[in-house]
Design a protein around this nucleic acid. Structure first.
Lengths: 208, 208, 208, 208
DNA sequence: TATGAATGAGAATTCATTCAT
DNA sequence: AATGAATGAATTCTCATTCAT
């Protein structure tokens, strides 16, 4: 499950993420910058990657993996659904205020950057290894949660997953817009979103 | 309200959108490609724009504006809330199957491409002229819809907009994933989403 | 003798000189700049000149002509040799402090800019019309001055012209270096140079 | 004293000088031409220089340095003043008939090309390292020559240096004009100039 | 294995010149 | 005659990738 990473490989990943967090624009990231930051020679990077594109795509993927793992572990600690969702929203808040890399990962995937080709390919490969992209985390949690209740149809399940996903995502966007930055209001909004998600789940379950 | 566009300016915008719809990657769009497609000389583009970045950013903005205008006008034709929402979802279907430019616009804005700088700047300027980004369309429709009922608090209003927005977004993502492509299933899903939105609005209003 | 200039032609000449005096670099002068400054349309310039090169070269030539004419007329007012030379040195001072266009003209001619090709061609043509480049002014003055004394050999005459020319040039360079800027010292130096020139003339005449 | 030059740096310098000697116009020299002639890749030039301007300016400076060094060494071989000056004039003849790069260097400096900015900056830096521009060579030779005689005032010294300088310079210009190309006449003129310079030095010394 | 100097294809941009109005 | 919008050839410079050490 835990793919082995070479140290220099990780150095590259971290360099990319760091530069990105510092506000660099994906398109103008250069191999020189990346390798310089990673503290390795420019040529060395080509021992591990076929090109710039792969470096960046894999870096984001690596980052996403780490995020999702952390997310899943955190969720498992929480007892009830409300707590779980709250944890997710708090993680999002943290991401937004820090660097919002997964956010951007999502965007890159949706747009058709040449990067997104790479990322989609990675997606396919990794699925086999049991890794968990954000969407899968939600699905898994729902499964665990509902395992002793009537499971809704696959169709409704897909809708539910995406609905939750998009609410979380939109919550992140709301935060990005800079509104509700003071803790109190942020808390209130988080609760509204959380209750909305819970209600939706209940409704879907009820309708099954 | 209706900014005057120079013919060559529009030619550029359309060229960018066309190329994008044909699957081009934003970053690798070249000025040569754009102007060739627009049917004008390379130099001419520089009479109207300060550089490539501006061309692309404004093209997306132009496209977004057109979409939102069309959206708002269509919504106004519809009598009831269900009809209005249905219209929005149909527009999304159309976009997704065609080119999903606004979808990508959203993503570009969330990421930090150098483009997004431009776009944000444009946003500020245009707000003054009463243009309407997607979010504002939703807010405006809600306002019109609720004007003779008790208006919820600003906070709840924001949440409601976010929630509707996210549901629409979610619907688009569902379509993008390629599931529900046959008309029947698509219709069923559309109804599911629509009812979900209506219910949510009712609940918020009831709780006020 | 007095070639007729079209008003727009002169406008171009003056625009070039002005821009040059303001410190513009010859090579980066653009036609747009020149015509904008001249207050005429870009296309109009091409009614009078075959291209940018011609505009600039002729502008300098025009400027040089004006300078030489002014120089010659001033010299003719003066009675004795000392006075004449003094007048030349004063004109140089003025040029240096203002814009030193002829100075640069000389340099352009010595270097092989594509401009210099033009200028040399102009030189040939104008000679026929009796115009007077700096060197010729000196020669002419010497001729006038010496007409009732024994004329030295052509060789010595050439050397004499060269020698005087170089002293004037040298004086200009001294001023350019920014030393001797206060009036008193400038006056002293001017006298030093003047006496040097007079002595040299006397010596050559004596040796003949 | 002898700055280290990278081989590719020198290749660039020589390429620039060669092209110039072949009659190329400074302004229309392109980076492609230069690097092609230098036998290196276009990109490589940018590893050593910040841009075209720097390449050309430094090339001339390099050339000037070489010339001055050669000049100074040659002068030191000569015993008496007349011999020294003769050597200078012969070097000038050689330069003029070959390529007259330093001549043009001087002109570039006097005009306000964007190159001249660079060159002036280089001047400042190099002075510190004891390099010798043409003017300094003259001054140094005079110092050596006069060390056991009464040294004239700094003011007169400056005048003397510039006067000699401008005579040499004008001699070069005379040759450039293509007169006196046959050896005999050239020799006669050279002697005239030489004697003129010697006389001037004597006079200044006598007047001190 | 690691490196970084060298490379050159390719991109953005400029600007002299033309020509329809 | 006067104009300036349109043009595209030409130029500078960047940067992913290679390869000799």
């Amino acid at each position: 499950m835990n793919k082995d990473y070479f140290p220099k490989e990780i150095a590259i990943y971290q360099a990319v993420i760091e530069l990105f967090e510092e506000g660099a624009d994906i398109n103008s990231l250069t191999v020189s910058e990346i390798t310089a930051r990673a503290g390795i020679g420019k040529g060395t990077a080509y021992e591990y990657f076929s090109g710039k594109e792969e470096m960046i795509a894999k870096a984001f993927f690596y980052n996403g993996e780490m995020f999702c793992r952390q997310l899943y572990e955190g969720i498992c600690q929480e007892k009830d659904l409300y707590g779980k969702i709250n944890f997710v929203l708090l993680m999002i808040e943290q991401q937004v205020s820090r660097a919002n890399c997964i956010f951007r990962l999502i965007h890159i995937m949706a747009g058709n950057t040449s990067l997104s080709g790479w990322i989609k390919e990675l997606m396919q490969q990794r699925k086999l290894f049991g890794e968990m992209p954000a969407e899968d985390v939600i699905r898994k949690v729902l499964h665990d949660e509902l395992k002793d209740r009537a499971m809704p149809s696959e169709e409704k399940m897909t809708y539910l997953v995406l609905s939750i996903y998009s609410k979380c995502f939109c919550y992140g966007m709301l935060l990005k817009e800079g509104k509700y930055m003071d803790a109190e209001k942020k808390g209130a909004m988080r609760e509204l979103v959380n209750r909305g998600i819970c209600r939706e789940i209940e409704e879907i379950l009820a309708s099954s």
